[in-house]
Nucleic acid binder design. Sequence first.
DNA 1: GTGAAAGCGCTAACAA
DNA 2: TTGTTAGCGCTTTCAC
Lengths: 344, 344
Amino acid sequence: MAVTIRDIARLSGTSIAAVSRVLNGQAGVRPLKRESILRVARDLGYIPNRGARNLAMQRTHIIGVIASDLSNPNYIDFIQHVENLGRKRDYQILIAASNMKHEREVANVATMLEHRADGLLIFPVGEFGLALNADHFMALWLNRTPFVIHGAVQRGAFDAVCMDEEELGYVIGKHLTDFGHKRLAVAGSPFNSETARQRYAGFQRAATEAGARIVCDDLAFEAGEHDLTGVHGDFWRARFQEPGRPTALFTFSDTYALCFYNFLRNLGFAIPDDISIASVGNEPFSAFLSPPLTTADPRIGERARLGMKMLLERIETPGAPPVVQDLQYEFIPRESTGPCQHGS
Amino acid sequence: MAVTIRDIARLSGTSIAAVSRVLNGQAGVRPLKRESILRVARDLGYIPNRGARNLAMQRTHIIGVIASDLSNPNYIDFIQHVENLGRKRDYQILIAASNMKHEREVANVATMLEHRADGLLIFPVGEFGLALNADHFMALWLNRTPFVIHGAVQRGAFDAVCMDEEELGYVIGKHLTDFGHKRLAVAGSPFNSETARQRYAGFQRAATEAGARIVCDDLAFEAGEHDLTGVHGDFWRARFQEPGRPTALFTFSDTYALCFYNFLRNLGFAIPDDISIASVGNEPFSAFLSPPLTTADPRIGERARLGMKMLLERIETPGAPPVVQDLQYEFIPRESTGPCQHGS
DNA sequence: GTGAAAGCGCTAACAA
DNA sequence: TTGTTAGCGCTTTCAC
């Protein structure tokens, strides 16, 4: 078995209490003893047992992160930030992935509870406005477990940091209509339909304000259909070859945008002269595309920071009412968007 | 405080031993009692305390993953796979990132030990053939902590899964020389210099075999210099504008490749007609570039599977000698490479 | 089949 | 300043 404080106590001829004090840097031990204890500990290669410590202290210094979908690179970023922030406060992070399954999410919440995580950071699988139930979050709340949700679940009921998707849609829309585009298109995935709905609404708002129109949209991409072969390709080919085709396109991810780069080029369109493309994601590659992609940065680092801050506050002040923080995307205009050169 | 088995025992008029048995699905409790215990547990909303359980059982069911650099999307993939594999065996995964710092790695190993992780999966910061020291791994080994290293540290001394970098270099080199290229170039980063060295060696071998030459290389990229502005840009501009310029380029990451796409196009080169580009990484975007990028897949899923398998075996058989498994990249030829159209 | 009791390694109150 | 002791929540012998 591993060496324990009891061993140290025995070998340095003192009590486990003294050892515990020294190891935790507490005062009340004569320097001589302290020295000796420290030395014995080192010689023995003592490694404290956090589990035992946690049990005794009723505090784990563990923060659980439940990600809906680890395959999304943004989460990695997030985790990396949380990891860094956590370390400063001596928190360890425990990760669980829900793989976009509601039941996995419920199970993950349970697991974190079993580990007695001091707090949870959750990317919910669905931002289900009303449909799917959020009982597991409700239970957490009643349970007084500190947690903050990243996304819009039962807005106002729990601590949450939300991206302002409506505003994003509006900003992109305005950027495009300011360039004179009148016929717009939207391509997105149905994930987090609430997110999609809000983006669309903001985009619509900008269009309306400018007397422009969303002439076509396709919000039904599934993963793996990114390449625009199959029905989605057929759909878009038709849209771009008929009269009154869109002159500007808003894609809901940089990878989509990239697919459209290829797709539209093969159709003989130049970007941005024939078609402007704006996106969301700001993935590392998007600055290097030709032309560099106009997109919006999700500010993952900021989200992580904010989420951690809220969580730590909640841990310290369990009683307070729920807090909701809104965050804006950072719009990054580049060269894939430009003045409208076609159409009315 | 949370409800404990003691509470359950009291309310169902029995002993904690019986409760423990029932909760762990062990036999030896009369069905009636079992029912009653289960019901009380549910009614009370009992949540087992893993920490306490671990302490008593001297086993945590935690697998620690120490990643050198979480910002690399490949690790995310890896973590995702490990997470999935672990769940099946009821393992939880604990993550720590070393941010490419040797001292962080050492600290992370210590932390995992403090958590008494049952096993560790480690991506070392440096695959330091000899330079940096691997004392912390040696300590783990002596400590009999099960761990497997992903990469080539002290090959043969510890359990490890290694990618065959030499072979990768050779395959890429052969692919290029088979197309008739005689003047080759290499662009890579110095990270994991051992990796770079091996890739280069394999590439060199293929070149020599085919009577081709590596006419220039630049292995000194740092993060953030991907965009080929500054000195690296100057270097490469010169190389491509002088006589005897390379006709094929091997980049050590897809992102590099993408940068060269831009860079070389701006210099007036067509891909692959004027210059072939092959890479490693197979990132999601690389299939969608135009032309689609010839690259090699790091087979992260396979690595995760193999690593987990080895780790679980080590956990079960602590005494066995170290095992080293080699894994090949999967070469994926696409359209960024083609027949040599210039030069001898 | 059942339960009392002894830990697991640590912290913290209390007494000395 | 020190050491003794009673837990933290759970598992697991061992006697009944």
